[in-house]
Design a protein around this nucleic acid. Structure first.
Lengths: 118, 118
DNA sequence: CAGATCGTGTACTAAGTAGTACATAGTATA
DNA sequence: TATACTATGTACTACTTAGTACACGATCTG
């Protein structure tokens, strides 16, 4: 359970780097707007994951799903939080109801809602 | 948009106090485990809302819905966050899909899932 | 009218968050 | 072999969070 976020980040970055030298710690750090030493420490788990803003930038740079990266960092996207905060009883009830449902059941729900056939 | 949480808290506490003297700032503060001066400042918006733990204790003491109180404080219950963090893509997609749905639609979904007739 | 209870003002703090700035040592390259 | 880029170590900091401790004057109560 220790430094999943950092390991994942490093693996992904090194993976991309194999075919594109611009995925060095320095270059990625510069693109997302932090010091290289800080990104290095993040990847090695020497410090806590960065802010949501930097994680989202990281996800974009590494072509990863921001929600997944945020989750690995122990966070939840602030726009999802806003949705819940606006109607806390409603979304609280829904999420708790779906807590232990299998993926396929939740997915079916997503599709039903999206397709509007319900 | 300024100090909704504190106002709500004070109104509710004073309301209960009308028929039960044990709902003074001091007594409530003691029951939830904070200093009276701190609760006073929270109610008057002089300081930020307290931690999730204290808010939940407050909700129990004042017979309020914890999710609602947390939302007024700009927070989301950590057990809901855990559900989302466990399956970020799934729940991210679902919540964004339901973001602008009317209450009754979301409610219907909650009931469908609960009743299992789907 | 004395003692208890009340709300609030002032002052302080320990721990966590989110980084920057700079130096150093290794590695690749031209 | 010079130089350029690489990762990382060390040291520091500004801001936020989540409160405590205590004193004060007002008010209620027996």
């Amino acid at each position: 359970m220790k430094n999943v976020f950092g390991r994942y980040l490093r693996d992904r970055r090194e993976g991309l780097r194999a075919s594109d030298a611009s995925f060095s710690v320095r270059r990625v750090a510069q693109r997302i707007g932090v010091e290289p030493s800080f990104l290095s420490k993040v990847e090695r788990g020497e410090v806590a994951p960065p802010s949501e803003e930097k994680i989202v930038a990281l996800a974009a740079d590494l072509k990863e799903d921001p929600d997944v990266l945020l989750a690995l960092a122990g966070k939840v996207s602030s726009d999802l939080l806003n949705v819940i905060r606006r109607r806390p009883e409603l979304f609280g009830a829904l999420i708790r109801e779906l807590k232990d449902m299998p993926d396929r059941a939740v997915l079916r729900l997503v599709r039903e809602v999206r397709d509007g056939d319900w």
